[in-house]
Simulated scan of single mutants.
Amino acid sequence: MTQPTHHEAHGGALGSRLNWLRAAVLGANDGIVSTAGLVVGVAGATQERPALLTAGLAGLLAGSLSMAAGEYVSVSTQRDSEKAALATEKRELKEAPEAELDELTGLLQERGLSREVAREAAQQLTERDALKAHARVELGIDPDALADPWHAAWASFAAFTVGALLPLLAIVLPPAHWRVPVTVVSVLAALVLTGWASARLGAAAPGRAVLRNVVGGAVAMAVTYAVGTLLGVAGA
């Protein structure tokens, strides 16, 4: 007989972990597409390795720092909103505890409990930790696991950087005549992987996600390469 596992992730913990994984995959995907478009565009104008390396590194740093800053601001705003909501709830619990108990009872009833069971559960939850009970049931917030803006910023920075390194290395390492083909093949293969991963993490069918990812990346590289080639010819 199989024994139950005591370390499985359930509920909010699993959902939070999947959200972080999905964000990491999407961050890496952004790094792949934006950096690939940049270096392939430059490759259309010149095959000089220093120019390609400079452009790629500039795109990697600009993109990763931009992603980190944007994520920091976004998550900081979310955290401030969560703290404000918790402060309001704490004040309401102090000023009108009975009304808050009735509200919690009603919320539990909406989740399928009978009036009697909901009342008993609300009373027990309130006695244990009223603020935590209302935060989780009413606000959908876990007071013990508020969003960390620095964590989000570093995660976005790392994910974008990892994704951007692929097209950067693919464009500077091979011989000149192989640079664009190697980059295109490598990027499209990586986009298949990130498209599949994002779809699976989102419990969606991977086929359409992969197709959208690959087509979007291919179009981005084709356009930037064409522009780079035109500019290279014009400047010759």
Rank of each mutant, 00 (worst) to 15 (best):
G37T: 15
L166T: 05
A87C: 04
S186P: 08
T161M: 06
A164L: 03
R17C: 08
W20L: 06
L18F: 10
L21T: 00
L107N: 03
V117Y: 03
A218F: 10
L61G: 01
L93A: 00
A152S: 15
V227S: 03
R208H: 11
S114M: 00
L101M: 08
P50F: 07
V215A: 13
A153C: 03
T5R: 08
V75L: 02
D102C: 06
H134M: 03
T224Q: 08
A62E: 04
L57A: 06
A51L: 12
A159R: 01
V184S: 09
L211G: 05
T194L: 02
L65G: 02
M67T: 00
G12V: 10
A133D: 07
A87V: 10
V75W: 14
D30P: 08
I171G: 04
E95M: 07
D30R: 03
V214Y: 09
V192C: 13
E100V: 05
F160Y: 12
R200M: 14
G31Y: 00
G56A: 09
M67P: 00
R136D: 01
L26I: 13
V187C: 15
L191Y: 13
Q123M: 10
A68Y: 02
V75C: 03
V117I: 13
T54V: 15
P4C: 05
G31E: 10
A58R: 01
L193F: 11
G207D: 03
K132V: 11
